[in-house]
Design a binder for these strands. Structure first.
Lengths: 206, 206, 206, 206
DNA sequence: CATGAATGAGGTTTCATTCAT
DNA sequence: GATGAATGAAACCTCATTCAT
């Protein structure tokens, strides 16, 4: 199959990344052997090594793809619903992250945790993961500012800190949804919204 | 009467678990070889296999130890400061989790992420991780109820949902502190406290 | 009438052999991959396999080419200077072998050693190498006879044995020049000429 | 089999080196797979890799052992027969090198050529090979001086050049004996001794 | 009981060769 | 004819585990 289009090459790469993605969601980075990926992809060992120099590069490609996907999903969720109220926005963020991101919310969460684990060892994966987080935070920063500007939430809070706290909460939801079956995402959103705010605390004399 | 005393046995087990802990924090579960643990522990291969049937059992022991540690640290943090205000309690939870748990906050976060990754594959590890989360949530539930009872936060919110949201936030902080250098934990706490509450939102007409 | 002419075929073959030659001088037979040869030749894999059935045939072609080259260089050296004295002839043989054979003496010596190594395994390569040696010895035999006939060296020695000894000496020079930087070829020639001869030994009472 | 003596470790190493030696003589360095060595040694893969970090180290060990062996054999040959005449010494050197060195002269020559080939790529092997040559030359230098001092050969020749020429001759004999069946070593020695010397050449008017 | 040398299945990767385009 | 992507056997090496001493 010579004289192959750039298109074909990209498709093949994606085919391998997808196969690796499936394996890794199922078994984790280091429990997935190259043979697993080779079998899952339907290609031969040689073919896989034509597109990736080794397992490390393949892991990085999967991590980067997932990170980009995460950031894009976050952007989409945040931008597509400009007029939501605060708790609607929260709920949308959560359900969007968990289900829009991937057909199966489990897959997303599982892969995310794998990537974080790998980030401890591979700086390239760490950078990809961090990039996704930073992009996500920026989006949420915009959202918070927008909500503040339109009076839907008070302007007293620091948008940077709020958006980072929000990010932590979302990441934590990912972890929880991975460890527990049937996490009540809506309940989580309500729980977050029900947290006391400074204004209230002052009023309560806290 | 057992030979070298039960005490000795437990001490040896702990010695091995500690060695494994250090290796895993450094390199992750699957990049840590049994030889690494053997070297780090200062024992022989045979000795390690006398106390653990294999790598799986050792991983489980490390995960369980860490989970218990996590739950205990959480209990301590929550119970030791019964009269704190809401934002003091938040800040205390965060700093307590991150530094009391372990000499190095990095180590704690890294091991946690490793355990979550392993939980995807090993039900025993999953149960340990889940147990720690459930225990932590219970503690926070108590805290929330206590704060509500003493009027330090409003009683309108569902304590279960609030405590779970709080847990998500804390888990997310662990993830963030692992991926970013010098996460501003206090800023995160402020950010969370600055989130709008339902009362405010109603007032704002959201 | 053949398609692109026999001439073209031969030129292509030579192009590939030359590429392989360069690779092998650089990296040896078995450290040179077909891909190396393919890249060095500027052709495609398919093209190389159109001209050679496989690596073995290519190796044989390189070995045969080099062997023929060696024999021709020897012939040229021996025949071009019919009236040299013994030590002039010796020096001419050495320098001719080492520099006329190839632009770089290192390349010649390196390839020769590779061929000898391969001759242990491949009878075709062995035959090529042996053929070159036999041809070289025949040339030297003629030289020795010629020198004896013209009285430039004594007729007492057996021309066959002398020429074979001479060949051994030359082969050894190749090996030495490969292992040592800056071998003093002239010194070697002097050394050989300074070896005692039977006549002297008798005279010395040996 | 724990608590093993140093002796045992050295023996095991030697066992592996010997197995590798046999494989390499038979098939060359790069046609010998680690599996071949493993099978030939009667050990397991893990055992071999306990004693050698990889194929390269094993190749080096074989090359070094052979080089030391070569130098020792040369020393022995030269020193054991202090009162030989020139042509007796020559014949003794040749037959000693070829048969004393190894039970099979073929093996010695074949391995030598392999080492020279490998020396082109591995500096450690090159150093071992060069070391053996330098040691050999020193021995022959002593021999030449001794022969000159006792009047068995003329003092006119430069001992350094003579010994180096002698070395070249011997190396060439190794090559020839590898490429040709039944090389007449005695004939070669006669041939060398029959080469014209300067004295004769002058007399002949060359 | 402790030791650590030995095992060998299985992991990652390479590379000579083929064949659809 | 030419191309170069694809193949897959086989190479090198690791590592969890065992067991003779």
């Amino acid at each position: 199959m010579p004289r192959v289009s750039e298109e074909h090459r990209v498709a093949r790469r994606q085919q391998i990344i997808d196969a690796a993605h499936r394996c890794i969601v199922e078994n984790g980075f280091h429990q997935t052997s190259m043979q697993d990926v080779i079998n899952e992809s339907g290609l031969s060992a040689g073919a896989v090594y034509r597109y990736f120099t080794g397992k490390e590069e393949l892991i990085r490609a999967v991590a980067e793809k997932a990170s980009v996907h995460f950031a894009e999903a976050m952007a989409k969720v945040v931008s597509e619903h400009p007029s939501l109220s605060w708790d609607q926005a929260l709920a949308r963020l959560l359900s969007g992250l968990m289900s829009d991101l991937d057909e199966s919310r489990a897959g997303t969460a599982r892969l995310a945790v794998q990537i974080w684990g790998e980030a401890q060892r591979d700086p390239v994966v760490a950078e990809a993961a961090l990039g996704a987080l930073v992009a996500a935070q920026r989006r949420m920063h915009s959202l918070v500012v927008q909500l503040q500007d339109t009076g839907r939430i008070p302007k007293s809070g620091d948008a940077g800190q709020i958006s980072q706290a929000l990010l932590s909460f979302l990441l934590g939801c990912i972890v929880q949804s991975m460890l527990m079956e049937d996490v009540d995402l809506e309940g989580l959103a309500h729980g977050l919204a029900a947290l006391p705010s400074p204004v209230e605390l002052e009023r309560a004399g806290g």
